[in-house]
Design a protein around this nucleic acid. Structure first.
Length: 547
RNA sequence: GCGGGCGUAGCUCAGUUGGCAGAGCACAACGUUGCCAAUGUUGUUGUCGAGGGUUCGAACCCCUUCGCCCGCUCCA
């Protein structure tokens, strides 16, 4: 399938539009049209129902260590700024970066260290040699002096034995002290010429805003880059109010915001996106078993919703790839058609976060040191980011045991899941035409009936003989239970195809026989087969076939 | 952020040297037909991505900008 065809269909039929399109669009933002909003809502409802509402806490699910409870939250998008400092997002999302025009490399501004040196620079193309004073730099943290000397030798075109001819000035310093960010005499860490570094630019990976109508920079706050933190900071509230016992999970669906450096690939990497996240709290001794359970359960959910093919896979992260807090992470990935052959894009990450989050929000931001998490200290020895000081431990009054729960986090992208379902559903096959024995190409969306924006379309075969009246009657009855459409315009074949293209799984047609025996035809999107169903039984039959 | 390509009707696209902005599909109305994109007639559809410049005259040339695609970079 070519991605452009799906994008064109999404626009033509009203699934997805570019945000602010009449003004030329806005990179990284998308609008869901009339059908798109229905599809995405169905994705979210399926998730919410399957994970939260229909969860039976009396039963032990296959693969689960025990029964467990599930509940939900809907937290604010803007939270206390300290939340993001303790979560680690502030540090990671707030760097000044500097680019090198020559090497095309990007460096963290505060990582570049260097030293002034003067030497004899041999002129190029026979030009006379001249003495030059340059600031050579490196991003090495070990053996800085050696790295700087090598950089200088290379720049001046000297051999190691001539190193003595270089005149070094005292002290290694950062380039943050240069006035007006004038780097014309600075040699970039991977550059061969001086003056190739750009001005430092702040990479605000979190969206910043100001709280209060008269607020200033002191009142800066951030739009959340993930919904998870709202659950962690409400951990005590949920335990105290919802009568839940560990192990239990809290689900949340909501918008998050990240200033992606390169928004690309349709809605895959958007700056405003929606997440479906669960934070599952359990006893540390059982956390590995729960991690396995959630990995497998979440993978199966996508399979059940229609991503059954080879394009879906589970990938366990390598040790080196793990985030600072994580003990284990697995990504559920889909081979999106816009990615190169053999590459997969993340739909959901299932992470074992240990007790990092609850402890950080209690003690202050933690860092990993060997096998344990310790409080991160600033240069002055004080905690870098102070926590809330609130006790985040849990007391199990049956086992008489107090502990800080470990957390398993299945974090899913609602927009990415929706896009994957669309990609997987896009099908082309052959269908018969009105002309005997002839076939034509048919484009349809083979969406799971639970996800389809329209569950059924109701047609009168022709616009006479009382058929429209009966069809409208059926439409009114079904409308009470599910999303249905009525269409009487044009030839019935065209109406079928139009519904195929938006993924409607069933079409109901009132024909000449209806007035005699109160039956209609029920046509299946995927097989094109028609069966006769009594009007009285339509709702029941449809509901069975949709689940 | 860098390099390359692109932007014309709802969609797919044509548009000659700078000289009246087009086609197919789709869409709408009225018929005929009556179970898989059938068919007749009629009709609607445009800031040519945006802003500026050159010119008697710009979809076309120049500059700026926004967006899309590809590659690099980035992706806690």
């Amino acid at each position: 399938m070519r991605m452009e065809e799906l994008v064109a269909l999404c626009k033509r039929r009203g699934f997805l539009f570019q945000s602010s399109e009449i003004y030329g669009g806005l990179n990284g933002f998308w609008d869901y049209g009339p059908l798109g909003v229905a599809l995405k809502r169905n994705v979210k409802d399926a998730w919410w129902n399957d994970m939260i509402v229909r969860h039976n806490d009396m039963k032990v699910l296959p693969g689960a260590p025990s029964a467990f409870e599930m509940t939900g939250l809907d937290c604010s998008i803007i939270m206390h700024p300290q939340v993001w400092k303790c979560s680690g997002h502030y540090d990671l999302f707030h760097d000044f970066m500097i680019d090198c025009r020559e090497s095309k490399k990007r460096y963290r501004f505060d990582h570049i260290k260097g030293r002034w040196v003067t030497g004899l620079k041999h002129g190029e193309n026979g030009a006379p040699a001249e003495r030059q004073r340059v600031f050579v730099t490196t991003i090495e943290t070990e053996n800085e002096l050696e790295a700087l000397e090598q950089a200088a030798l290379k720049y001046f075109g000297l051999r190691k034995k001539d190193a003595d001819s270089l005149e070094w000035e005292e002290g290694i310093s950062g380039i943050d002290s240069f006035p007006n960010n004038d780097f014309s005499q600075v040699l970039g860490p991977d550059a061969r010429h001086v003056g190739t570094l750009t001005e430092p630019r702040e990479f605000n990976l979190m969206f910043k805003t100001i709280v209060g109508a008269l607020g200033s920079e002191d009142d800066a706050a951030f739009l959340r880059p993930e919904t998870a933190q709202g659950i962690f900071v409400n951990f005590k509230n949920v335990v105290d109010s919802a009568r839940v016992r560990v192990p239990f999970g809290v689900g949340q669906i909501g918008k998050s915001f990240r200033n992606e450096i390169t928004p690309r690939n349709f809605t895959f990497r958007s700056r405003e996106f929606e997440q479906m996240e669960i934070e599952f709290f359990c006893h540390p001794s059982e956390s590995q078993a729960w991690y396995q359970f959630w990995r497998d359960r979440r993978f199966k959910w996508y399979v059940d919703m229609g991503l059954a093919g080879e394009r879906l896979r589970m990938r366990e992260h390598e040790q080196a790839e793990l985030a600072h807090y994580s003990v284990g992470t697995a990504d559920i990935e889909y081979a999106f058609p816009f990615l190169p052959e053999g590459e997969y894009g993340e739909l959901e990450g299932v992470a074992h976060r240990g007790d990092f989050d609850l402890r950080s929000h209690s003690e202050g931001k933690l860092v990993r040191e060997g096998d344990s998490l310790v409080l991160e200290k600033g240069p002055d020895g004080a905690p870098k980011w102070r926590g809330s000081g609130k006790d985040m431990s849990y007391y199990d009054d049956l086992k008489k045991e107090r502990f800080i729960p470990h957390v398993i986090e299945p974090s899913s992208g609602a927009d990415r899941a929706t896009l994957a379902f669309l990609c997987e559903a896009y099908q082309v096959d052959k269908a018969p035409t009105s002309e005997q024995g002839k076939e034509e190409e048919r484009v349809y969306l083979k969406l799971h009936p639970r996800l389809a924006p329209v569950k059924a379309a109701i047609f009168p075969l022709v616009r006479k003989d009382g058929m429209p009246e009966i069809a409208k009657e059926i439409y009114g009855e079904l409308k009470k239970k599910m999303a249905v459409q009525y269409d009487e315009k044009g030839a019935v074949g065209r109406r079928y195809r139009r519904q195929d293209e938006i993924g409607t799984p069933f079409c109901i047609t009132v024909d000449g026989q209806t007035t005699q025996d109160q039956t209609v035809t029920l046509r299946d999107r995927d097989t094109l087969e028609q069966t006769r169903v009594k009007i009285d039984e339509l709702a029941k039959v449809l509901e069975e076939r949709i689940e």
